[in-house]
């Protein structure tokens, strides 16, 4: 039962991601990207990371996608030029080359996973032996809060300052130039 739901989420994530890539209409692709992110959040729950899943939904669906839709609508001329085909010069490659590269990379990753399957890292084996594995009935969110405020306080502060910098930088970049 558990595996069936996992496979359903995995197929939903991969299938909607493939559709996102193949759709010509950018607005539809962006709305389908919602589905991919929701399915990824479901997969996070299967790894017993409920707080990360909720954060994913709040940050991505509430923030990032709205921002992307705004940017898409503000640069809407592109909609008319979707059929125009320009041969790529330096950043984008022809479709078949990028497909080849992506498939090759996928092959390398899969090969790594298959090779790795025989030898689990020592720390995982040790933690399984000592029972230091997150269980479904653990109080995840409380533990995470404690860790954030004690062990990971420095990265937490660094990332808050970084977020402030990003906020100021984005506001500065997107302001209107005043006429001299």
């Amino acid at each position: 039962m558990e595996e069936l739901v996992f496979y359903a989420f995995a197929i939903l994530a991969v299938g909607s991601a493939l559709l996102v890539v193949n759709l010509k209409n950018t607005a539809r692709a962006l709305f389908l990207f919602f589905v991919t992110l929701f399915a990824m959040a479901g997969l996070f729950i299967f790894a017993l990371a409920d707080f990360v899943a909720i954060t994913q939904i709040m940050v991505y669906v509430g923030g990032v996608l709205i921002l992307m839709l705004f940017a898409f609508m503000l640069s809407n001329k592109e909609l008319l030029k979707a059929l125009q085909h320009i041969p790529g010069r330096f950043l984008t490659m022809p479709n078949w080359q990028s497909l080849l590269l992506a498939l090759g990379f996928f092959g390398v990753l899969l090969w790594g996973v298959v090779e790795w399957q025989q030898q689990t890292p020592d720390w995982i084996v040790q933690n399984i032996k000592q029972g230091n594995v997150i269980q479904p009935h653990d109080n995840n969110i409380q533990q995470l809060g404690l860790k954030f405020m004690t062990q990971y306080i420095l990265p937490f502060e660094v990332i808050s300052v970084f977020l402030l910098m990003v906020l100021i930088g984005a506001a500065h970049l997107s302001r209107k130039e005043e006429q001299k």
Binding site: V14, A17, A102, F105
Partner: peptide
């Protein structure tokens, strides 16, 4: 790995 390759493409 699947999602990463799709993103790369």
């Amino acid at each position: 790995a699947c999602i990463f390759s799709i993103g790369l493409y």
